[in-house]
Computed example of a mutant assay.
Amino acid sequence: MRDPRAIDRTSVAVVDNHDALFPGIEGLVSRPGSGLVHVGSFTSVPPVLALDSAPDVVVLDLLLGRQDEKSTSWIPQLTARGSVVVVHTSEERPVELRRAVRAGAAGLALKNDGAASLLEVVRECAAGGFGCTSTLARALITDETLVAQLSPREVETLSGIDDGLTRQQIARRLGIEEGTVRSYVKEVRRKYVELGREVTNASSLVREATRDGYLD
């Protein structure tokens, strides 16, 4: 765990899909008395990895590039260099956020929570803690009642439905029996009903899985 006293020397890099946000975040980090030092703002991760010294904290947008590619896969590389990663995002789908935490993110800052709360989370994570900008942010990554726990096969089945495939075609794609596909659909429906979600057909199952972040 990082020595809390090191907060006075914490270097911060920002990676965000929208460079229009850079001035605001840079000004916040560079504010006198913040205890933070801004070392650069970037629209992609490779330039951060190319820095001679790894930043103490990387504030990372979850979606990057023109195609809004997920940045989760970069988190292990950033943490391997010794950086603490704080996800700064407008994404509020629990599954996507939890993937980022499992990949090694040390904190979550929702963009809607404002810049001041981001600063608090950066400080908390730099000191070795796990920070969230709000009760909602923490719930999105910890509250098991917010999201159905779907298995990989159940997600693959829903993906097939989303692609417009019949159950028979899904069975062929997955190399399973058509009856197994029906069982997966039935189990997914049960899980969403237990959460109080209104699911009446296959399309509504796809809708809820997309809402949670299992499907794009």
Results as ranks from 00 to 15, higher is better:
residue 78 L to K: 01
residue 37 V to K: 15
residue 14 V to G: 02
residue 10 T to I: 07
residue 36 L to P: 00
residue 73 S to P: 11
residue 60 L to N: 09
residue 103 A to W: 00
residue 142 T to V: 14
residue 124 E to V: 13
residue 32 P to W: 08
residue 87 V to D: 06
residue 92 E to F: 08
residue 146 L to C: 13
residue 57 V to Y: 13
residue 10 T to K: 03
residue 71 S to A: 11
residue 60 L to C: 08
residue 133 T to M: 06
residue 55 P to W: 07
residue 32 P to D: 01
residue 58 V to H: 06
residue 77 Q to L: 14
residue 125 C to V: 12
residue 128 G to P: 08
residue 39 V to C: 05
residue 52 D to M: 02
residue 79 T to E: 07
residue 88 H to W: 15
residue 150 L to K: 09
residue 38 H to R: 05
residue 36 L to R: 01
residue 131 G to P: 13
residue 118 L to F: 01
residue 126 A to C: 03
residue 38 H to Q: 08
residue 65 G to H: 12
residue 64 L to K: 03
residue 49 L to P: 03
residue 62 L to H: 06
residue 139 A to M: 09
residue 44 S to I: 00
residue 13 A to G: 00
residue 58 V to P: 11
residue 15 V to P: 02
residue 39 V to S: 04
residue 110 L to P: 01
residue 38 H to S: 12
residue 139 A to Q: 12
residue 12 V to Q: 05
residue 73 S to W: 09
residue 41 S to E: 04
residue 144 E to F: 15
residue 30 S to H: 06
residue 65 G to Y: 13
residue 119 L to I: 14
residue 41 S to M: 05
residue 146 L to T: 12
residue 143 D to Y: 02
residue 57 V to R: 07
residue 74 W to H: 09
residue 145 T to V: 13
residue 31 R to D: 07
residue 68 D to F: 06
residue 112 N to Q: 15
residue 111 K to G: 11
residue 61 D to G: 09
residue 11 S to V: 03
residue 60 L to K: 02
residue 30 S to E: 07
residue 80 A to Q: 13
residue 132 C to V: 13
residue 59 V to E: 04
residue 39 V to N: 10
residue 122 V to Y: 09
residue 124 E to L: 15
residue 40 G to D: 07
residue 28 L to G: 05
residue 31 R to E: 08
residue 27 G to K: 12
residue 49 L to F: 01
residue 26 E to H: 00
residue 103 A to I: 03
residue 150 L to G: 09
residue 125 C to D: 03
residue 92 E to K: 09
residue 127 A to H: 10
residue 125 C to S: 10
residue 76 P to W: 01
residue 119 L to C: 14
residue 106 A to G: 05
residue 74 W to Q: 00
residue 55 P to K: 10
residue 130 F to I: 10
residue 76 P to K: 02
residue 75 I to G: 03
residue 118 L to I: 04
residue 48 V to D: 00
residue 135 T to H: 13
residue 90 S to R: 14
residue 89 T to W: 13
residue 118 L to R: 05
residue 41 S to N: 11
residue 38 H to C: 06
residue 94 P to I: 08
residue 146 L to K: 10
residue 130 F to K: 08
residue 73 S to M: 09
residue 69 E to P: 05
residue 126 A to P: 02
residue 17 N to A: 14
residue 51 L to S: 00
residue 75 I to Q: 02
residue 126 A to R: 02
residue 136 L to C: 12
residue 98 R to S: 01
residue 22 F to D: 00
residue 73 S to N: 14
residue 33 G to Q: 05
residue 77 Q to H: 13
residue 90 S to T: 14
residue 124 E to S: 15
residue 60 L to R: 04
residue 104 G to P: 09
residue 147 V to T: 12
residue 140 L to T: 09
residue 57 V to H: 14
residue 142 T to R: 14
residue 130 F to S: 10
residue 55 P to N: 10
residue 126 A to I: 02
residue 63 L to Y: 14
residue 134 S to Y: 04
residue 119 L to E: 15
residue 91 E to H: 13
residue 42 F to K: 00
residue 105 A to Q: 09
residue 72 T to M: 08
residue 95 V to C: 13
residue 112 N to K: 14
residue 128 G to L: 08
residue 22 F to M: 04
residue 96 E to N: 08
